[in-house]
Computed example of a mutant assay.
Amino acid sequence: MFAVDLHTHSRFFHWSPGRPTRFDPVGLSLSTLAARLRGLDAVAVTNHDYAYTSQRRFPTIPGIEVSTTMGHLLVVGPDPPSRTRAGELTPSEVVEEAHDRGCAAVVAHPYRNSSLRDTDADFDAVELNGKNPEHVVQTRELAERLGLPLTGGSDAHYPFEVGRAYTLVDADELTPAAVADAIRGGETEAVVNLNRFEEELDRAYTRIHHAKGAMDGGGFSPQ
């Protein structure tokens, strides 16, 4: 059993979506250090619309957070798409490509700026997101209704956020292919573990996302 944060970012902000920046190596180094300190075994690097990986001692799982036409979809595994264009691909198109590449497709934060839960795409799992513990009950009910397993991801953009939600992955080895297979096979357990500071931070995130949703007209925003 491995503890893996399946939703992290190697950058603080989305100032240039869809491509790597000079900050990515620094951000990933800080994130993996935080993950090690929190007792995790690995992190998945899932930047918005581009994949970024780097060889390092702490295990990292390749991934990408695709901005589909209806919300954000995590693609995790050995060969995620290197780049995507925000708002261009449908959920079904992303899932099909993910499976063709030996990856798993996970619905990210299903109750924040997303309508993925209303599609009939062949998702592999639903995420309990570390930024939205107020949605835990709804998300568990959604996963049960869809007959899908749950994963956990912190959605960390800053190192101190890593590990506030993570996934227990039942696999024989800690490789991208094994992690993807475990997700697709339902061999995962989602964990949300917030300390008092993170609970207060979540309340701030919730206010920010509500305000952003209002400014976006209440619909899905690619970023």
Results as ranks from 00 to 15, higher is better:
30 L>Y: 05
71 G>D: 13
129 N>H: 12
62 P>M: 13
23 F>G: 15
63 G>F: 05
49 D>M: 02
38 R>N: 11
35 A>K: 02
121 A>I: 03
133 P>Q: 14
97 E>Q: 09
45 V>F: 04
140 R>A: 00
139 T>I: 08
132 N>V: 10
33 L>F: 13
26 V>R: 14
99 H>R: 13
132 N>R: 15
124 D>W: 12
94 V>N: 02
101 R>C: 09
34 A>D: 02
25 P>G: 01
65 E>D: 11
117 R>S: 10
82 S>T: 14
73 L>M: 12
95 V>Y: 03
133 P>D: 14
34 A>N: 03
87 G>A: 15
52 Y>N: 01
72 H>S: 09
68 T>G: 05
63 G>P: 03
123 F>Q: 15
136 V>I: 13
129 N>F: 15
69 T>Y: 05
78 P>W: 06
51 A>S: 06
25 P>V: 01
108 A>Q: 06
41 D>H: 15
134 E>T: 08
131 K>Y: 13
35 A>Y: 04
67 S>F: 07
111 Y>A: 14
69 T>Q: 15
34 A>P: 00
64 I>W: 12
108 A>L: 12
73 L>Q: 06
95 V>E: 11
119 T>H: 04
50 Y>D: 01
43 V>E: 15
95 V>S: 06
49 D>I: 04
56 R>L: 06
131 K>D: 05
50 Y>R: 00
21 T>G: 15
53 T>L: 05
100 D>K: 11
101 R>I: 08
45 V>C: 04
115 S>Q: 13
63 G>A: 10
111 Y>C: 09
134 E>M: 08
127 E>M: 09
50 Y>A: 01
71 G>M: 10
38 R>T: 11
80 P>I: 05
112 R>F: 00
74 L>S: 00
94 V>M: 03
26 V>L: 14
78 P>I: 02
128 L>F: 04
27 G>E: 06
129 N>P: 04
101 R>Y: 07
60 T>S: 14
89 L>V: 09
83 R>P: 08
76 V>A: 14
104 A>C: 10
107 V>R: 02
83 R>W: 12
29 S>P: 00
118 D>A: 12
34 A>L: 03
58 F>G: 04
81 P>T: 03
44 A>I: 14
75 V>H: 13
136 V>K: 11
20 P>V: 09
118 D>K: 14
41 D>P: 05
72 H>Y: 07
128 L>A: 02
141 E>H: 05
